[in-house]
Write a protein that binds this DNA or RNA. Structure first.
Lengths: 204, 204
DNA sequence: GACATCTTTGCCTAATCGGCAAAGTTTGCT
DNA sequence: AGCAAACTTTGCCGATTAGGCAAAGATGTC
């Protein structure tokens, strides 16, 4: 079986750990959470945590990695005759970004939670891990683009990296924006800018 | 004094540590090098290493961070009336990329050394750290773009991230290319693609 | 049901992390 | 020059992380 009980359980554990990591970090700050606490919160042993992730930060970023993989999957699912950038926009927007959704359901953006996420993301080691997460998923995304466009080598890899950059910039803007803007809207703007070649503003 | 003895020494130590890290890693593999060895090689105490870097990988990536900062500096130095993308191309190409240069001078790309670098870069934790390095320098680069274009907020950050993506993709291609291509050439191609909006190949 | 495979766990040792304060340098000021 | 403030290096130390190994427990296959 492609996904038996075993695989499902593994995913559940992975998600539970990642979530526990996020929750505890939002609440107590990254430095004040031991991986032991995270493991306990998720109901597994410390050693098991290490089988899944090699650091707190990686556990936190795991949800972002999963999202990236889902975006790649979504891209593969788009109609083959759709223009590449349309497909990219659609697939990216279909998963939004970063830690608001989920949380047990589709909560309205809880103010306290959001502030916690903001604070959490100021941790440099977290920002680094997010970059790393994108890099990790980038491989898969590049492969999806390669299949879709029938190209190989530089082009798919480049597009994948650029889309990662777009997501990073969009997330940063989302964290910064006051008043808040929906991430999907920001992402759309960013992708439009990119497919227009990032024209220098005010420089006709 | 803006750069007294103190500052100079600090930079020297930093460089010495980063180099020691690279050399030892190329020679023995990341896993077989203890930070203690690196510190010894650079002639400082273990504890001092930790004052500079928080991991082996960070030490190795430090040279890349420095390069990024030099690119940002170079961008600020370009004539203000030059089109943005020209300035970006020029400043980026002025520093090439990743670990070939330096090494005590401008050696011809030593075959053994290059193979070592290639191997080193396959370490996942290193790739992650490079991504992180870009993210760290991205701030500075975005500021340079903001000053140059007189824009704020999303645009400069986005361009900075995208240029980072360009460098990542170019580096990957450089590592992959057989026969080898000069990194400057790859980088030029990549930046041209980006400023043209990454047109889908064969999709007029 | 019996066997193979994978996951979880505890145990253990080496390595890393980061606070603290003592000792040594550099800098700014007079 | 002389001196104090500011900074860097270092050793010391306890807490935490890292990851190999093998026993025990689940799951998958036939």
């Amino acid at each position: 079986m492609a996904d038996g009980l075993r695989e499902r359980k593994k995913q559940e554990t992975r998600i539970a750990l990642s979530w526990a990591a996020v929750r505890l970090t939002v609440e107590h700050g990254l430095a004040n959470v031991r991986i032991e606490d995270i493991a306990a919160e998720a109901g597994v042993s410390l050693r098991t945590f290490r089988n899944y992730f090699s650091s707190k930060a990686e556990a936190i970023a795991a949800r972002e990695v999963d999202r990236s993989l889902r975006i790649a999957e979504e891209l593969r699912a788009r109609p083959a005759d759709e223009p590449l950038w349309t497909a990219i926009r659609m697939s990216a927007e279909s998963q939004f970004a970063l830690g608001v959704e989920g949380h047990g359901g589709e909560q309205p953006p809880d103010e306290r939670w959001l502030a916690g996420i903001r604070l959490m993301m100021t941790e440099p080691s977290l920002q680094g891990e997010m970059a790393r997460a994108h890099a990790a998923a980038s491989e898969e995304y590049a492969a999806a683009i390669a299949d879709r466009t029938g190209t190989q080598g530089l082009y798919p890899r480049l597009v994948a990296e650029v889309v990662g950059a777009a997501r990073t910039a969009a997330s940063a803007e989302w964290l910064r924006a006051d008043p808040p803007r929906p991430i999907a809207e920001i992402l759309r703007e960013v992708l439009d800018l990119i497919s227009a070649g990032l024209p220098e503003p005010g420089h006709n």
